[in-house]
Design a protein around this nucleic acid. Structure first.
Lengths: 161, 161
DNA sequence: CTCATTTCGTTTACATGTAAACCTTGACCC
DNA sequence: GGGTCAAGGTTTACATGTAAACGAAATGAG
């Protein structure tokens, strides 16, 4: 049933369990995020990217951070962040302010609207993540997934390692 | 270490393990696919999407399928597939042919080049998946991940359920 | 048969991502 | 200080995704 419903078949030189894990991951990646994004868009009119930016900023001491630092933290390219911040700025969610010390760069700050937005969006979003993901898994599975991600990420560039 | 490097912080009303699993999944989604895509692009000059299309077609009886059926199988929108097939057609990887029975639609077929391409690309791609993913995990973890994906996907629309 | 409805696929308008080129500005060396 | 190089952001050109409107062909009711 699950290995035969093949969204992305490989001429597989992976055995059944390996194949099932990989395809499962790929389909989850395809559908789960889409579903949660749909909820977020409906409930708060935000994209996942918007949410991630607001969330990262709201976790900063003064709701403020250099573009560069933010990009590093989020593992986004400078370019992507710059463009995205531009769009969010137009919607009044964040603002750019000249950097205190370094004349080159600017800080991004959460606006009052941005703060309100993330605060209002968070409960629904967490509920959505629970509904489609967290609450479906056992404690052991949650731990296992955390470990899996850690192992995989430790080998990848862009990580602490 | 891993839960403090926060790419997408939630004001978390998820406990630590839940949060770790969710963020781990999100970061894996962000970085793992990028890495494998990079390999695929370097080795075979294909995007993941290209590979998935070629792979799905090569698994068909006559390397051929209606656009609609292919879109359903891959869980892609008609629009996305239509545009993507157009691009692949220009590169000579696939071809459109008028449908035998239904005057509206067309079949997509793998060309000789397309077939050769996927056959040559597959070994490297599988190796890449092994290197960055499969071979890093224990047998228990692979099984767990397969189960996790199955549980999550069973609740989602667009699935067999 | 003939019109209304569905289905199939494409197209249009637009949102978003990337890589690379591009200005500033800061840092460093002499 | 003045020249060279690195760093911070933005912009350009382009690849790709989506939703919604669209046109053509099939289907079904009368």
């Amino acid at each position: 049933m699950s290995t035969t419903v093949v969204a992305m078949t490989e001429p597989h030189w992976l055995d059944d369990e390996e194949f099932r894990a990989w395809i499962g991951y790929r389909r989850m990646r395809l559908l789960l995020d889409a579903e949660i994004a749909r909820d977020l868009s409906r409930d708060a009119n935000l994209s996942m990217a918007d949410y991630d930016v607001l969330s990262a900023l709201s976790a900063e001491p003064d709701h403020r951070r250099r573009l560069n630092g933010l990009a590093d933290r989020m593992l986004w390219s400078k370019s992507r962040l710059s463009r995205h911040i531009g769009r969010m700025e137009e919607r009044g969610l964040v603002a750019r302010t000249d950097s205190p010390d370094d004349g080159r760069g600017a800080d991004v700050v959460l606006t009052a609207l941005g703060l309100r937005t993330i605060e209002e969006a968070a409960p629904d979003h967490v509920a959505s993540v629970r509904r489609h993901f967290v609450d479906l898994l056992s404690r052991e599975e949650l731990v296992a997934l955390g470990n899996i991600a850690e192992k995989v990420l430790d080998r990848l560039p862009g990580e602490t390692a």
